[in-house]
Computed example of a mutant assay.
Amino acid sequence: MSQLEYLIVLVSILVGLGLADLTESLRDLVLPERNVRWDGLPVAWAVIVVGYVLAAWWTFYDLLQSAVWHRPLTFLPVLLTTLALYLLCAFALPDADREDVSYVTTDARGTKTVDLETFYLSSTHRRWFFGTAAIFSLLFIGTVNAGMVYDGDRALQMGVRQTLFALPILPIPALILIATRHRWVHWGLTLYSMGWVVYLLSDVANALAGGG
């Protein structure tokens, strides 16, 4: 087994666990016996997270072919980015089986209802989910730029500039979503983030086509 295959196995396990957690949460929500008050915002962010997974998976497959990442310390940024991606998958949708949370209510007949709007707008969810999203995007962008600088595809000054330029594009909007409960702000930045995911996926697809 080559070093690339060895490292890809670890990354794929973490990504697979994240997707499994996300799909399990979705499955629990759509079960016929589950009473759910649906809301578009958490569903939209679940789709965005899947887009992050696709972009990171193919980017890391190309990135890890460089020998610079085949050392414990230099591999650490890739590992931290993958761990953040796993947590994003885990935080995107609620655990429908929990009862001691604000988003699960019980009526007089004992019927439990999972309220996705309450879950999404809760300060705990916003803090953990969007905080992780900010960390993931910063790690992802920084790691990709570092790899391009090492391979000679980008000058160091340009790599630093591109990383700093990305701050208002992805991490800062995530921090804004932590700070506010206004739905119009969340919808605006959700659509904005979805647009960036589409752009990122198209950019990755073009890079893979060019590399092939």
Rank of each mutant, 00 (worst) to 15 (best):
V197D: 07
Q162Y: 04
L138G: 08
H125V: 10
D21C: 05
L177P: 00
R154K: 15
L14R: 10
L177Q: 09
R127S: 13
L201K: 02
S102Q: 14
L19Y: 00
T163C: 01
W69F: 15
W196K: 05
G110Y: 11
Y103F: 12
A166R: 00
Q157H: 08
Q3D: 08
G159N: 01
G142I: 01
L191G: 12
W45Q: 01
R161A: 14
A174T: 08
L139Y: 02
G142P: 00
A179K: 11
Y199G: 05
S25H: 11
F140W: 12
L200K: 10
D28E: 13
N145A: 10
M148L: 15
L175C: 14
V149D: 03
D39M: 08
F119I: 13
L7E: 05
A205L: 09
D97E: 14
L26H: 02
S12I: 03
D151G: 13
R154E: 13
S193W: 04
W187P: 04
G159S: 02
E117V: 00
Q157G: 09
L76R: 02
A209D: 14
V43M: 09
D97R: 15
T82H: 02
N206A: 15
D203P: 02
L200C: 13
V53I: 03
A155T: 14
L116V: 10
A20K: 09
M194V: 11
A146Y: 00
G18F: 01
T81F: 06
L14V: 09
L200N: 12
T81W: 04
I13F: 09
V30W: 08
A84R: 03
R34Y: 07
P72Y: 03
V149Y: 05
L4H: 14
I172G: 02
A179N: 12
R34N: 12
S202R: 11
L7G: 01
L19E: 03
W38S: 03
A207L: 14
A134E: 06
G159H: 00
V114T: 12
T118I: 12
P77V: 06
I13P: 03
S202L: 15
V160H: 01
A146C: 06
L88P: 04
S123E: 14
W58N: 04
I8W: 12
L87T: 04
D95I: 08
F60R: 00
W57F: 02
Q3N: 09
V43Y: 07
L156W: 09
L138C: 10
V114N: 08
T190H: 03
G188R: 09
L80Y: 04
T118F: 03
L29C: 05
L80W: 07
T124Q: 14
L14P: 06
D107E: 15
Y120P: 02
V43K: 03
E5H: 15
N35E: 11
V101M: 05
L156C: 04
A84G: 12
G188A: 10
V204P: 01
L26V: 01
M194N: 08
N145R: 12
S25A: 15
L121R: 13
P168S: 02
L208G: 10
S12G: 04
R37K: 14
A155Y: 06
L7F: 09
T23V: 14
L22G: 01
T132F: 07
S193Y: 05
L73C: 00
